[in-house]
Design a protein around this nucleic acid. Structure first.
Lengths: 232, 232
DNA sequence: ACATTTTTCGACGATTTATCGGATTATTGC
DNA sequence: GCAATAATCCGATAAATCGTCGAAAAATGT
């Protein structure tokens, strides 16, 4: 990625590239394992943990079950993660990085703030739908948890809002919506609504078609924001 | 409350009263304890659990700590709650009932849907601010949890949205906002944004003034919704 | 005051988490 | 290839926490 090699710039287009670059490449857990065998084991643990956490909930899940599901012994699991909590909070990182990478790819040919923002928010919902087990663990157990703020995961969670704020500012500069509005407030509205729809879908499978629903709600919100009268 | 004695009615005003009546009086955990001593112990347990859960998070909290904090032995606590989970999910019910009761009182002299809705959403945020320990446990640990849907608590959580939906329909009938809009969608936007603000405040103490911020965001959203052009 | 019911608690068993030393498997240097 | 070394894995077991039970203490009714 050439933009990573360039010096910091205040050119808006470059800022966007570098923001995406940063969030898509937050250092994952430094897996210092030397052998391929270990990398496979690590994957098996993560995948088993995801299944078990999604099925039983984190607090009801037992380390022994996860180890069994991964086909290893309990003590081997402890070679990789020092506790259940450690495992639970590491789990979402890879998926989040994948999401940002997918978004970065999909947004490459879009330059308008509104287009970019619509894509971002609808892809968020769609990603939850496509990775429902992950979403169950992330949205219903980890994201709102007090302890996110104590972990590395916090950076990735913060990134989520950072992208929305960036695009709101871009849109304000470009005249897509009034510049006077409190963009933190606008971001809270957009993110809150999308989270609300995702959580409702995860808990009750309503709305039936999450993709369609999220497109509907996002377009409606952006339409409202665009046609707000400038702050007075 | 006399309206509880009346037969079901399709009169809108009476529907509103009976909705409020229902949600404010969801049966609490039936405490079958005979002695006053027990009622005190029960309160001590709930109050201790709230402090410990808010401080350590539910999963890190130990039953023994809660019992010690309540000044009783571990086994006595088990006389009252069959597990930590049981205790955790029972905890929010009383507070939620209190909130609904407070709202019912405060809304008594308001008849417009918009006024009622503004009051509801801002009181929600304010209640979280006033009962921060409770809010920490409820919003960050219990509300989004998978298992809410398995407990009695679910009814109270559903009530939360029910009120908003009721008022959105009232407002549509009264011409406060376009009748064509998908009111489930509108409810998701309103509730999602308020939850988002509350959660952000709980985690990061931003915005500094939660009350002011929630009034701002609620009024802005209702303004946007009121001035949407009718669905086409 | 005594019998009965309710509440409390210490002792203990069960479950789950976490550790450790050595056995097993892979990699490296020659 | 083959030892030497490092990395990985696991059984046995310690540590922590959850949860149960029967008997003691307190409250209640007569």
């Amino acid at each position: 990625m050439s933009e990573a090699d360039l010096p910091p710039s205040s050119d808006p287009a470059s800022d966007w590239e570098s923001l995406l670059n940063t969030i898509a490449h937050r250092p994952k857990r430094a897996s210092e394992r030397k052998q391929d065998r270990s990398k496979r084991t690590e994957q098996q643990i993560l995948s088993a943990a995801l299944r078990v956490f999604a099925r039983d909930g984190i607090s009801r899940s037992r380390i022994a079950d996860i180890a069994a599901e991964a086909g290893i012994s309990t003590s081997t699991l402890y070679e990789y993660y020092k506790s259940k909590e450690d495992l639970a909070y590491d789990l979402p990182r890879n998926h989040l990085a994948d999401f940002f990478e997918e978004y970065r790819h999909a947004v490459a040919d879009k330059s308008g703030a509104r287009e970019r923002l619509t894509l971002y928010l609808t892809m968020t919902a769609d990603f939850a739908r496509e990775h429902a087990e992950w979403a169950r663990v992330f949205y219903l157990e980890i994201w709102p948890s007090v302890f996110v703020s104590e972990t590395e995961l916090r950076h990735s969670v913060d990134d989520f809002a950072r992208v929305v704020l960036f695009l709101l500012r871009q849109g304000a500069r470009d005249g897509d919506w009034p510049a006077g509005a409190d963009q933190f407030q606008t971001a809270a509205i957009l993110l809150g609504a999308v989270n609300q729809v995702i959580i409702t879908w995860l808990l009750y499978r309503r709305p039936r078609n999450l993709t369609k629903a999220s497109i509907g709600i996002v377009e409606r919100m952006l339409e409202m924001i665009s046609s707000e009268r400038p702050a007075g």
